[in-house]
């Protein structure tokens, strides 16, 4: 039984990682061939960093992700504060609307935003992509921050006010530290969703503006160049490192929290 389980895990792991590994191996291939190994080289990495189009796509992707997830985090956290003040009915309505965006198919979000922008008289450009990314990111922020607000309740904030803190001071010193893990998770989620998005960007971008995803899509149609393999390897390794670091940090802070809990209990 144990052996069977290990075999099963291994098969799925191979299924998940072999395709990625193939790309990574062929990113070091000397020739343009995707099937024949002609010797180790960094050629495609070099070409990648000289490819203006690819570099601008990378810059676009990460600047859109950074700005949109930052705005989404602020907007979402504020929305949570507002929702906490609402009666059950108001909360249900907003959370329901939140779920529409969250669960809607990408293609529907994409075309609806495109039609919406045109109805409002916007020209499709980088700004519309940014607005679109904020729109689909906020629900993820609310989903991560809301439970923290629920956990916290109003009493510790009120206690701080009773002890003479100003509302802003109390929020900064009492409420915000409790929310921090939720806000961080929401930001990270929004960031990933933005970096990974293709469909919504596809419909809301103006001509000539590329993100990594739209660049890949256009290249896949006309013929893949191995520079894309180099890009894949870099993206994969970056994701791996970032996630390991985040994992490590959150593990450590969890351990620290436990430690402080022990101290306060004794």
């Amino acid at each position: 039984m144990r052996a069977l389980k290990s075999v099963y895990l291994t098969i799925i792991m191979l299924f998940l990682y072999l395709p990625i590994l193939t790309l990574m191996i062929f990113s070091f291939n000397g020739s343009k061939s995707m099937f024949k190994w002609t010797g180790f080289s960094f050629r495609w990495y070099g070409e990648m960093f000289e490819d203006e189009k690819m570099l601008s796509a990378i810059v676009n992707t990460f600047s859109i992700a950074a700005i949109s997830s930052l705005i989404a985090t602020v907007l979402g956290t504020m929305a949570c504060i507002g929702i906490m003040a609402m009666a059950k009915r108001g909360e249900n309505i907003i959370m329901g609307l939140n779920n529409i965006t969250l669960l809607n198919a990408d293609i529907v979000t994409g075309i609806s935003l495109m039609l919406g922008f045109i109805a409002f008289g916007f020209y499709l450009n980088m700004g519309t992509v940014l607005l679109a990314h904020i729109t689909f990111s906020v629900p993820y922020v609310i989903l991560s921050v809301m439970p923290k607000f629920k956990q916290l309740g109003p009493s510790s904030y009120e206690a701080a006010l009773d002890l003479g803190a100003s509302p802003f001071y109390a929020f900064r010193k009492v409420v915000l530290p409790e929310l921090r893990p939720g806000i961080a998770a929401g930001f990270l989620l929004a960031f990933t969703m933005s970096v990974d998005d293709f469909v919504v960007t596809h419909f809301t971008r103006g001509a000539g503006i590329n993100t990594i995803s739209t660049l890949i899509y256009s290249q896949v149609k006309v013929g893949i160049r191995p520079t894309l393999f180099a890009l894949s390897s870099i993206i994969f390794v970056t994701a791996l490192v970032v996630l390991l670091v985040v994992n490590f940090i959150s593990d450590r802070s969890a351990a620290e929290e436990e430690f402080f809990y022990e101290i306060t209990q004794s």
């Binding site: 907007l75 504020m78 929305a79 507002g82 965006t101 919406g116 679109a132 509302p167």
Partner: peptide
């Protein structure tokens, strides 16, 4: 601290970005 108007920007956003 919990004031309804904090949610207004997002409600506006939902209106313009989802409902319309």
């Amino acid at each position: 601290m919990y004031k309804k108007y904090f949610a207004f920007p997002y409600v506006f956003w939902i209106l313009c970005g989802t409902i319309i």
